[in-house]
Design a protein around this nucleic acid. Sequence first.
DNA 1: CCAACACTTAAGTATCTACTTGACCGTCGC
DNA 2: GCGACGGTCAAGTAGATACTTAAGTGTTGG
Lengths: 120, 120
Amino acid sequence: MLNHQPTLDGVFRALADPTRRAMVDRLSRAPAAVSELAAPLSISLAAVMQHLQVLEQSGLVRSEKVGRTRTCRVDSAALGVAEKWIADRRALWERRLDRLGEVLAETASPRPAGRKKKKS
Amino acid sequence: MLNHQPTLDGVFRALADPTRRAMVDRLSRAPAAVSELAAPLSISLAAVMQHLQVLEQSGLVRSEKVGRTRTCRVDSAALGVAEKWIADRRALWERRLDRLGEVLAETASPRPAGRKKKKS
DNA sequence: CCAACACTTAAGTATCTACTTGACCGTCGC
DNA sequence: GCGACGGTCAAGTAGATACTTAAGTGTTGG
């Protein structure tokens, strides 16, 4: 269970479940004990623990036990890993659309049309 | 198969698989046919089709068939939905840390200790 | 001390997932 | 026309997932 470095596989899989997203949402507002996390969810405490384990292994959540209560908090670094992957692919795609736009604007100019929207 | 409005569940689940991420990555560089998508992957074409279906239902990818080839492209809107959810939770968490920082800075002042790193 | 509390572990189960193979269908090029 | 191409459909399977219940373990308050 010392497997806390975030991987894309782990983070996305963890976020794919609505219960786990609810838990992350709750924890992104403030740290909470396991039973606090479980309170609004209509599943057994054991099930919440299993979700928590998934979240911890993905690196999205860290927790520590003091006395008999375990306090959980989000680790935003893992969120960042997922966010970055998405942003990168999106940038790639949109950059490509831009280039495509340029090419279209050029190939349209053999006969320079009147309505050309050029910025530079 | 007309179920193309992106949901968090669908998008995150789709991105949780490395094969599907590879497909999205490939498509974020340029549109491609199904067999082009399949070429670098060591799985059957039928399996690629099944992944493609998941990607389409999640809204991450659109495709259209012309003649006998189906051309696939990314729809960045779905990526945006996932990106936004993550960014929102992260903002929530970091905003909270800021507030916490302020409070700590304040409650630390009753007895101004020697080694205090104060900026303002 | 002891009962309530806050988990923790183990085992079992129904459903889902990521594949496979093999048959099939429409389209393109010669 | 007909064979190869590009894709589609259907069925089956091994392993993962999201739970459940039931029986623990260690902690705390009275």
